[in-house]
Design a binder for these strands. Structure first.
Lengths: 332, 332
DNA sequence: CTGAAAGCGCTTACAG
DNA sequence: CTGAAAGCGCTTACAG
């Protein structure tokens, strides 16, 4: 392995000067810089990051910390993590940071301890539940964190969020405009912040159109396709006048559509359905599913940007809002 | 930040002894170990990995190096990387290794240099093309590597593979047994080793059933859904007696089915289709797609296991063979 | 513009 | 079972 020492010897310079030349410090002659960098390349020099970090007492590492998926079956589905990782990596690499991924298991007692142990200093957080006490403890810590999809704004903490409420309202409005006035909502897990926001959007849309909003038209589908399917059977039995479904996820929308089709309902003629997420297969099912699309790659990119901004004190806001787009397809 | 020095002072011991105690060396009294670890926890000590790596001239880090996806649209599809990462992480964590992900861009000139720069010592490789010269150079290097899906066996190199040929032959045989004797194959990129193997399997199945195999029945779909779709139109026009399609990926099978349905063919009555991969949506399309299923999580798990085995000299084979399973659904 | 030297936090061969 | 000391490869304050 070539080190600064080797280069110094080869150049007839001191290690100090070689270091400065390679790091492009001002107080080194152009001539020296050129000579040093040529020899460095020639000798195949590679900086030892561990040594640099130790010397500089810093780390240019950004942790992408993701709540691990326990259920192996779930891993066989589309998952946002990889696109987010790609986005973060792109921005980070461009700015001389590194992304290190950590998949955190649910049996970890304290996230703060985990950060300590792993030597994580700054992190992008994804997949956490907003009311998990370990997560809340982390938000009280001194670590610099950017949360994806969870609104938070405080010292050293930021977030990248999409306006779920707004886009949920757009989705429901699209349904209403297509002529469906009796719209039920199948919502996700109640501990998920997106569920709360999407429900709010649903209510906004009804209010905007002077439609009665009844709490009993909102159901908890737990982000589960199968549960949404059985719920739909029950709902259509109890409230046969329902002619529109807003589902908080595409998977639930698929379950819902399955039930409707089993009941002999025509989509969208009899009942309209709109989802949320724009998972890959939403384009391909029959009828193709209308939904709200988010750009996961971009979420990762913006999260890295914001985190670095916070660390380097070069941002004046700790909240990045991303927009979505409504994908209208055959199901409404 | 608490360092060994602080703990040493607090314990009234030398730094040396504290280091040894914390690393559970044999030649430290039980008593000392307990005292030191208690104080370390109390003081919130966290090992500085940079310093350790610098001192030990090593890393317990396993790099998961993945060929980056250039096309952002592709990121919106099911992707094996995250399941593989989860699998690797599981095994690695259990054995005190860390996984660091590296997404390598296509514009990198030399992978060997990249490894050097990043300080990667051992890696799991996924998504590379077997005839990429940069990849071949890497295989000649001293780095310990385990390749996923690319057969290789030599000093410091291993692989986790599935028997594509065998399972491709099973898939085609299933098609034949369902009564389709004129089977065409839509293959993937010719630079992918899996394409070569799956094609071999196709030929094996034909031979086993004494069916004529004509080279002109094999088409290059480049793993592209749209291309497979247009190919299928052409194929059915040129060879209207074809009544079975073996596609080297589910996405291509979807394109193929689309074309067939547009042509008014009934699946599976008129034409049978079988894919490869078992992507999530293959279960959901109509008719549901028969295919070959692989377990990506397991691939990652086994890759980490093999890599650590090679590093620690505790394996007697450098090749791990994983089995697949045939998922017979409505499309044949 | 350049260099000698100290220091980052850890590990380990050597000596006891 | 324990400690003093050297060393990993880099950066930078200090001095010239």
């Amino acid at each position: 392995m070539t080190t600064l020492k080797d280069i110094a010897k080869a150049c007839g310079l001191s290690i100090t000067q070689v270091s400065r030349a390679l790091n492009n410090h001002k107080d080194v002659s152009e001539e020296t810089k050129i000579k040093v960098s040529e020899i460095a390349i020639q000798m195949g020099y590679v900086k030892n990051m561990s040594a640099q970090r130790l010397a500089m007492q810093i780390s240019n590492q950004i942790a992408l910390v993701v709540k691990g998926i326990e259920d192996e079956n779930e891993l066989m589905e589309y998952n946002s993590v990889y696109p987010i990782l790609c986005g973060s990596t792109k921005y980070a690499t461009q700015h001389n940071y590194e992304i290190a991924m950590y998949i955190i298991q649910d049996d970890i007692k304290s996230y703060v301890k985990y950060f300590q142990q792993k030597g994580i200093g700054k992190a992008i957080l994804f997949g956490f539940e907003y009311n998990d006490i370990r997560f809340l403890e982390l938000l009280e810590s001194h670590y610099t964190c950017v949360c994806i999809d969870i609104p938070i704004e405080k010292e050293n903490k930021g977030c990248v969020i999409t306006d779920n409420t707004l886009y949920a309202s757009y989705a429901v409005e699209a349904l209403i405009k297509s002529g469906k006035k009796n719209v039920a909502m199948i919502n996700g897990k109640s501990q998920a912040i997106v569920s709360i926001e999407r429900e709010a959007g649903y209510l906004v849309a009804l209010r905007n159109h002077n439609l009665e909003h009844r709490q009993k038209y909102i159901f908890d589908g737990n982000f589960d396709r199968v549960k949404a399917e059985s719920l739909t059977f029950q709902i259509m039995k109890d409230y046969p006048d329902i002619n529109g479904f807003f589902c908080a996820s595409d998977y639930m929308a698929m379950g819902c559509m399955n039930a409707l089709q089993a009941l002999g309902k025509k989509i969208p003629q009899d009942v309209g359905v709109i989802g949320f997420d724009n998972i890959p297969m939403s384009r391909f099912i029959k009828p193709s599913l209308s939904t709200v699309s988010q750009n996961d790659f971009n979420k990762g990119y913006e999260a890295a940007k914001l985190l670095i901004g916070i660390c380097e004190n070069s941002t004046n806001t700790n909240v990045t809002r991303l927009s979505c787009s409504l994908e209208i397809r055959q199901s409404i």
